[in-house]
Structures are given as structure tokens and as C-alpha cells.
Design a protein around this nucleic acid. Structure first.
Length: 232
DNA sequence: ACCGAATGCTCAGTTACGTCA
DNA sequence: GCTGACGTAACTGAGCATTCG
């Protein structure tokens, strides 16, 4: 009963619309909104099919007391509204994903910076201990060749490092258990062991694990800013 | 088979009206 | 009552597919 009244109301609205809709310049003079019932029916059909076949359009127009053109325009506008809503939803979803990635990138960036400064610190420590070795070697020649154990050890190691590959360096340490190793052991007892444990091993380990020179890592990570620029 | 006009549909963009705070 | 924002019915023009002579 109420439904029929609604449709009747809609039909009346549509009829008055048709009678008075067009005047000068083809402009709509008295635009009427569709009734709730008309909208409900249109929405109901739109849910199952967003495009209407011509026959269905005619039938629906008859049922709702509208012109087929009005039904076609309603579907057209409804598709447009649906599309803009969908674009809005997709935008929101992408924004959330972007924000998550951006914050993940930020924390990775901070972690990278802290690791870089740690590597720099370690490099500095290694460098200063190498310099200390050279000083020690110089001192040892001065006191007649008997020498400073730490200085000899470091000077020898440094020299080998500059001439040989990483694998060779590892062999040197294992070979030191032979006759040469013995003399070294004697000498190394006071300071050398501590040095190797605390400073040399971390460096060689670092080089072995990454198979690169730490200073190169620093240079590369700092300079390869193409993708970094993208984010910042 | 090919061509061009007519027709009908969709879409993006725009206009204009109705409603509401 | 006036006004600006907003939602929406309707229009416009372009592009595309189909039909028909």
C-alpha cells in the first residue's frame, strides 16, 4: 500500500517533471528528485548489474513511471559515483601501505646510520692500532732488533695484508703454530694475544663475512643515494 | 567486400537545481 | 530570509560499435 503510494508519488513527480522540464534553451526548469521507492528499486537492480540491457531498461522505466532516458542517466550517474568512491577507497588503502613502508624505511635508515658509525669507530680503532705497530717496529730496530713483540707482530701482519689476499691471511695465523709460531708465541704473550682477540679478529671476520673492504661499504652506502632520494 | 551515414551506447566533465546547516 | 556547500538529475561532446543502404 505504502509502496504503491511511493511509486504513485514518483510517477506524479516524473510526470510533472516531463510537463515542465524543458523550456527556453532546453534547460531543466523544474527538476524533481526521484522518490525513495524509485531510488530503492534502482539501487537494488544496480547491485546485481551496473549496466542495463535495453529491454530491462524499458521494463524498469515502466515499472517506476520514469522515462527510459531517466533510467539510463541514473545508471550512468550511479556508475560515476561508484567509480569515484572506489578510487577514494583505493587511495586510502594505498596511503596506509605507503605510510607503513615509509616508517619501515625510516627505522631501517636509522639502523643503517648507527651501523655505519659503529663500523667507522671500529675502523678508526684498527687504524690507530696499526699506527701503534709501526711505531713499535721503529722502536724495536732502535733497541738492537730484540724488539717489541706487539710492534713486530702488527708490522708483519700489516705488510702481509698489503701483499696478500684475505684467505692467505687466515693461513698465516694457523701456520704460526710451527717454528715461527713458537717464536711469535713467546713474543706475543704479553700484548699480542689480547690485540688479536680484541681488534684483529673482528676486522678479519668482518671482511670475510661480507667479502668486501669495510671502507668500501661505507663509501657505497653513503654515495648510492638514488633510491634513498626517492624516499626522502 | 567496402564505405559512409545513422543510431545507440558509454564515459568524463559540466551545469543547474534542491536541500540543508 | 539569505548563503554557501553538497548531492544529484540532466546535459554535452567525444569515442566506439553496430546496422543498413
Amino acid at each position: 500500500m505504502e509502496e504503491k503510494e511511493n511509486i504513485h508519488q514518483g510517477v506524479e513527480a516524473s510526470m510533472s517533471f516531463l510537463e515542465t522540464s524543458r523550456k527556453k534553451n532546453n534547460k531543466v526548469e523544474n527538476k524533481r528528485r526521484f522518490s525513495d521507492e524509485q531510488i530503492r528499486s534502482l539501487e537494488c537492480i544496480f547491485e546485481s548489474e551496473s549496466k542495463l540491457e535495453p529491454r530491462k531498461k524499458m521494463q524498469l522505466a515502466r515499472d517506476l513511471g520514469l522515462q527510459p532516458r531517466q533510467v539510463a542517466i541514473w545508471f550512468q550517474n550511479r556508475r560515476a559515483r561508484w567509480k569515484s568512491k572506489r578510487i577514494e577507497q583505493e587511495y586510502r588503502k594505498l596511503k596506509v601501505e605507503y605510510d607503513n613502508l615509509a616508517s619501515m624505511f625510516q627505522s631501517l635508515k636509522e639502523e643503517k646510520e648507527s651501523l655505519q658509525s659503529e663500523v667507522q669507530k671500529l675502523s678508526y680503532m684498527v687504524e690507530t692500532s696499526h699506527d701503534g705497530g709501526r711505531e713499535a717496529k721503529e722502536n724495536s730496530t732502535e733497541d738492537g732488533g730484540s724488539g717489541n713483540a706487539y710492534g713486530n707482530c702488527m708490522a708483519e701482519t700489516k705488510e702481509r695484508f698489503s701483499n696478500e689476499g684475505l684467505e692467505d691471511r687466515m693461513v698465516i695465523y694457523s701456520d704460526d703454530q710451527n717454528e715461527r709460531g713458537l717464536t711469535r708465541t713467546e713474543k706475543v704473550d704479553d700484548r699480542g694475544n689480547e690485540l688479536l682477540r680484541n681488534e684483529e679478529i673482528p676486522l678479519t671476520a668482518l671482511e670475510k663475512w661480507y667479502n668486501v673492504d669495510p671502507s668500501v661499504i661505507l663509501d657505497q652506502t653513503c654515495s648510492s643515494s638514488q633510491w634513498l632520494d626517492f624516499w626522502t
